[in-house]
């Protein structure tokens, strides 16, 4: 059983809300793993705050999706009681954290996309969504400041940091195309311009890799999502139907 992007009116809105919610939830879960593991205490705080931002956006989107859908689904129904093949997040966000460079490059690619996405969605006819987009957009701009500054520090830091940053760019590039297919009309050109500018300042090369991998928006994920969900959903699956 998979999930297809719906095409009709409010159904497609619900699907879009869930997809963006899933993107933010999965990334929040990943960033939470850095807590007590960051290179310096200040960065622990920064990554934790960013994780909280993404979690907050996910919760707002799920809640709104549940309301429109009208089947009584709550934020926890979406997060904790859907199987892997029902999740609609892009593959980029479910990739493991890797080293700090890997996490920052993943963030750079996603943040630049989010800034454009939320800007577009502030113009939505749906007032609630446009409100969520306004707040999420502000946060995304801050996230992009953080990830692009780190990309430059690492790309133009030491030889080791440069190598790790380039490895991360090369490894994650194949997950970027997926950002531009699916809900939202975010333009690849604009995203590419932002990314190229940051990479240039960082002394990093744009990869020459023509190969792209997607499927997340259709519920076809890498092996990583399964373990992530198993851990996240453990309590609800072990003790169903209780209040916490």
């Amino acid at each position: 059983m998979g999930a297809e992007i719906a095409t009709s009116g409010s159904e497609s809105l619900v699907t879009a809300l869930i997809a963006h919610g899933d993107d933010n939830l999965v990334l929040a879960q990943r960033l939470g793993e850095w807590i007590s593991n960051a290179p310096e205490l200040e960065e622990d705080i920064a990554l934790g705050n960013i994780a909280l931002d993404h979690l907050g956006v996910a919760r707002a989107l799920y809640t709104h999706a549940g309301q429109i859908e009208g089947r009584g689904r709550t934020e926890d129904d979406f997060a904790m009681r859907r199987a892997e093949r029902e999740f609609l997040n892009v593959l980029l966000v479910e990739q493991p954290n890797g080293d700090f460079a890997h996490t920052m490059i993943r963030a750079l690619f996603f943040d630049a996309y989010q800034v454009d996405l939320w800007e577009e969605l502030t113009a939505s006819d749906d007032d609630t969504l446009s409100g969520i987009a306004a707040r999420a957009g502000k946060e995304a701009r801050y996230h992009l400041l953080h990830s692009s500054a780190w990309t430059v520090r690492l790309g133009d830091g030491t030889e080791e940091s440069h190598r790790r940053a380039q490895d991360a760019v090369d490894a994650l590039w194949r997950y970027t195309d997926e950002l531009f297919h699916g809900p939202g009309q975010v333009s690849r050109e604009r995203w590419q311009a932002t990314i190229e500018q940051v990479l240039e300042e960082a002394g990093l090369e744009v990869p020459d890799d023509p190969y792209q991998w997607g499927g997340g928006r259709r519920g076809l994920h890498s092996e990583h999502l399964g373990s992530l969900l198993a851990e996240m959903q453990w309590m609800q699956r072990s003790y169903p139907g209780l209040q916490w």
Partner: peptide, 22 residues
């Protein structure tokens, strides 16, 4: 944090741990 039973509890716990770092 990864296994918090609800999103609400996850958010609270993350905020608490961030406060502690601060």
């Amino acid at each position: 944090i990864a296994r918090a039973p609800t999103l609400h509890r996850k958010a609270i716990l993350m905020a608490k741990v961030q406060d502690e770092a601060g």
